[in-house]
Design a protein around this nucleic acid. Sequence first.
DNA 1: CGTCCGCTTGACTCAGATCAAACTTGGTGG
DNA 2: CCACCAAGTTTGATCTGAGTCAAGCGGACG
Lengths: 207, 207
Amino acid sequence: MLSIFGIQSAFENAGLKASEVKLSRGETLFRWGDPVRKMYLVERGSLVMVRTLENGQELVVQRAGPGDLFAEASLFSDQYYCDAICGTAVVCAVYDKQDILNALTNPDLSIPILRAYSLQIRDLHTQIELRNIRRADERLLAYFNTLPVDDEGWHEPEHSWKDISRTIGITHEACYRTLAALERSGRIERSGGRYRLRNQAAVKATR
Amino acid sequence: MLSIFGIQSAFENAGLKASEVKLSRGETLFRWGDPVRKMYLVERGSLVMVRTLENGQELVVQRAGPGDLFAEASLFSDQYYCDAICGTAVVCAVYDKQDILNALTNPDLSIPILRAYSLQIRDLHTQIELRNIRRADERLLAYFNTLPVDDEGWHEPEHSWKDISRTIGITHEACYRTLAALERSGRIERSGGRYRLRNQAAVKATR
DNA sequence: CGTCCGCTTGACTCAGATCAAACTTGGTGG
DNA sequence: CCACCAAGTTTGATCTGAGTCAAGCGGACG
C-alpha cells in the first residue's frame, strides 16, 4: 500500500499518461499468471491481493485503498503472482508498465517510487512482527498502535473488522470475541463505530 | 534480504566508496533509535533484525546473509526501528547513506535498488502468506517450497532449525516435532543434515 | 422486499504453546 | 588433549487459546 500522494504527481511530472478502469465489487483486476503490462493507481474503492492455496485457503497478501499504487512489486515481474479482487466498486488510473520502466531513468520518478517501496517494506515488516504476537488481544492492540488516531485518541476504522481480522491473521470470530473482551476489561472503548485505547494498555509494535 | 549480486557492483559503478566493519557473534551493528548514517552490505556471516516488544518477546523481522544489503528499508528513514544483531561473526561493507541518496539520481544505481526492493517486497509477501497457513506441517512444507533445491530435490539448510522455526512463526519444539512427524509419515526424507520432499506432498506457496 | 454480508455470541475441540529435561555438537581455553 | 560451556536438537506431559461449526441479528443495497 503505497500511500504516497507524491506518486500520482510524480507520474504526471514524468509525463506518463493514464487511462481509467472501473470495476464493481468482486471483479478481478488481474489473476495469477497474467502478464504484467499495466500498473494501477487506486483512486476509489479498495482492492485485495489474494493467493489461493491448493487446499482452498484464501490468503490476503495485501490491501490497497485510494492513493495506493497497487501490486507495485510486480513492476519488475513478468507475471502476477496473485489475484487482485475488488472489495468494493473500484476506480483505478492505469499506466503502462513499460512507460514507467522507461521513465525510471528520471530521478523525479525513481526516487518517489524508491521512497514508497521503502515504506512498503517497513509496513510489511510491521505486519510480520504482528504475526509473531501470539495472543489475539495483544496482537489486536499492537495493530491498533500501528494506526493513526485523532487528537483524542480515537481510531476511525478504514476496513471492516472481518478484513482486519484477515490482515492480522485471526478468524473474524476470534476478532469479535477479542474486541468484546477488550471492551469488557476496559482496555478499549467503543462508540459509534470508532474506538479508542485506554490507559495505554498495549503491547507496542513498530512505528 | 537483497540477494542481488548486482547491488555491490552497482555501488562501485556509481563511484561509492566502502569501508569495512567486522563484528563477532552477538554484537550489535545498530540499535532501535540510532540515527541512520550508514548502509551495510553483508560480505560474510549472518545478521538478524530484531524487535523486542514490551513484554519481552523477541521478534526476528529479517535475516540477512552474504550479498544482502541490510536494513535497506532504512535508506529513507532517520532512525532505525529495530536492533541488528550478529548471529555469527560478520564482515560488512559500509557505505555512507547520504552518498547513496545523492547518487540515486544515477539510474545505474537507482534501478538495481528498485529491482532489489521489489524482490524484497515479494519475499515479504511470501512470508506473510506462510503465516496464514495455520497447520504447522503445511506451513513447514510451504516454507520448503520457497527454498532452492538441487537436481535431486535435496534442500541444504542454510539456517538452524531453531532459526527457521522463528522465521515461520512456530516454536522450535513444534518445529522439531513436526519434522519428526513429516518424516514418520514419509512426506519428507532426511539424511545427513539435508532433507527432501517426497511425492510433492505440499501446500505450495508463492514462487 | 429480499438477499447478501458484516457482525455477534455460544459450545466444543484440538493443535500448538509452555514447561521440563536430556542428549549432541562445536568451540574455547587451560 | 580434555574439560567445560553454550547452543542446537529431541522428546514427553500438560494446558489453553484460538479455530471450527453453528445459529441469529440487522443494515445496506439493488
